[in-house]
Design a protein around this nucleic acid. Structure first.
Lengths: 342, 342
DNA sequence: CTGAAAGCGCTTACAG
DNA sequence: CTGAAAGCGCTTACAG
């Protein structure tokens, strides 16, 4: 290509990158030649030759097709596009091993930053393995930020106020008149789950109310569906005055499944039973009734994460935490207490 | 790292990659050293040094947070994960310039394959620019596959049978008794839109029915909402016996918006008016009523696309086309004709 | 302003 | 089986 333009590679490089002043006619010859050849500099060679950082950032989430991750990723992509960065987005499908191996691939790529989105695995071996991957990466100048992550990773974090949000939700539901609650919960080893559960309990406790039932399910739409089925089963066996009048699913995605299960069982929402979720993924507004939830600014959480990761390391070099508040949004899926689950 | 192990770089390379037999004790020394150092070979140097192709494939779609693209991308990611490939996923936010520049970044990365997901821009300048990017890429051995794309690109294609699917849908709706239809359409320069529109017209024509109204909107949920509002406005001005009893939105995403608009206007679905979409994105099953649609196997379309791109080029080196059938799924949003839009 | 040269971190014939 | 050497395609001091 330099030959095609009749200049040295050095000059071609300078002309193409505008990294130094090149005489006009040479510059034009270079650009013309590049045009003619459809030439694009090899990014690998560039990465290798220049100390300059990569233009790629890696994002690892559980599943892009989950609306929660889709919304956050969308924020990341927007912010990345503005900065001229390429995003490598990977889905782990919730397999820890896959997560680790993606980090390792991103290290190999010398990605400028790695973003981990979503709960980590509360697993000693996993933590150690992840630390082992991340430590040399960070030591070599790599940036890491996480959103809604396990605390053990000492990295920049965007952390939704799960506990406070769930507590506020509980208060609002109590304010509606509810006294008997059930929770559809996810895997308890996820901090997101335990925080929301704790917050919800706390909000109820302020009103002197205990939590009657917690049913666990997978962190998916179908997990919510199954958990609601089991809840329904156990409610059918209890006296009607003991049946919950309000169900809180710890994520909107689970609430979507729960709504389907309730509907199938003939429980009307909110006439018989109220239902609330957490996250405010876009689709819950389309349900009927639309879902009461704790709204998180998902897109901007993604933007924050990339901003955190890219910001020059502060003096202290300590992990920063951006706390994000959730806002209770009461919609049609909650109302005054009905006759309860049946 | 080779030094740390006390061997030559060549031996270290061979030991780590298993690319040649290395004596046991040396191999162990190398692995131990790598472990100790948290060493990961620089993928850029590897890409540069070896003819071996990259392990990364690029995917370009309009918007990851759109459930349609999320579902297809999910298929791509799954297939990529199985093959040990890294996916670089980019959202263009529907800006042609962004699309081109992503292709160019992926070329610079020497991505093994580039997948373009979703309608292209029917724009002469864009087509030329895209060709200019793609041609040298393919010439240099890059693979390209597209799903649901503009025909002008002569590359491997996963092509949903938009026309046949829409025709089948029209027949099914006519079978329900409907005679007066309206379509909520997207930008007509998208082939997806014009194909679905043509197919729908064709299906109606077989029964001697004409298409009363076509209202255009953006290819988004809000576009569907707005288009439905306009349709409602014009229906209010026409005699009731002329009002459509069935509305077809050319995508589910638009149908979601339309459903909201109809509901707000007090039109009951399907009692007053039936509503149908196209694609079968997961969320339409959660709506109430659930949406009648033409189901496309979105996830496997993504898998097909990557398989097409990766498959060794055939003898003819001609672009292959995998046609994907849509299946009409009648759900609660359609029924016998009601009194029509009001 | 421009070019020759060294170097980025690997891999892979090529000898041994 | 192993190492020295060349080369992948760039960038960047270093001279001029």
């Amino acid at each position: 290509m330099a030959r095609e333009a009749g200049v040295s590679p050095a000059t071609a490089s300078r002309a193409l990158n505008g990294t130094a002043t090149v005489r006009d006619n040479l510059r034009q010859r270079v650009h013309a030649a590049a045009e003619r050849l459809g030439y694009i500099p090899n990014a690998h060679a560039q990465a290798l030759a220049s100390a300059a950082n990569n233009r790629t950032v890696g994002v690892i989430c559980h599943d892009v097709s989950d609306p929660y991750f889709a919304a956050i990723s969308s924020g990341v992509m927007r912010a990345a596009a503005e900065r001229g960065l390429l995003v490598m987005l990977a889905s782990t499908f919730r397999e820890p091993a896959r997560e680790i191996s993606y980090v390792s691939m991103l290290r190999a790529q010398r990605a400028r930053a790695i973003l981990l989105i979503g709960s980590g695995f509360q697993d000693r071996a996993w933590e150690r393995a992840m630390d082992t991957e991340l430590e040399p990466y960070v030591r070599a100048g790599g940036r890491v930020a996480v959103v809604s992550r396990h605390r053990s990773l000492r990295v920049d974090t965007v952390q939704p106020e799960n506990q406070a949000g769930a507590a506020a939700l509980a208060r609002a539901l109590v304010g509606l008149g509810h006294r008997r609650f059930a929770v559809l919960s996810g895997p308890p080893e996820l901090t997101t789950v335990s925080d929301r559960l704790a917050g919800f309990r706390e909000g109820l406790a302020e009103a002197g109310i205990g939590l009657d039932q917690v049913v666990e399910g997978a962190f998916t739409r179908d997990g919510g569906y199954e958990a609601a089925r089991r809840l329904l089963l156990s409610a059918a066996r209890s006296p009607s005055r003991a049946r919950p009048t309000c169900v809180f699913a710890v994520t909107d995605v689970m609430a979507v499944g729960a709504l389907a299960a309730l509907r199938e069982a003939g429980s009307r929402v909110p006439e018989d039973v109220s239902l609330a979720g957490f996250d405010d993924i876009p689709l819950v507004r389309e349900l009927s009734p639309p879902l009461t939830t704790v709204a998180l600014p998902l897109t901007s959480m993604g933007e924050n994460a990339i901003a955190l990761a890219l910001r020059e390391v502060g003096a202290g070099r300590r992990a920063r935490v951006v706390r994000v508040e959730g806002e209770v949004v009461l919609r049609g899926s909650t109302g005054v207490p009905g006759r309860g689950l049946r």
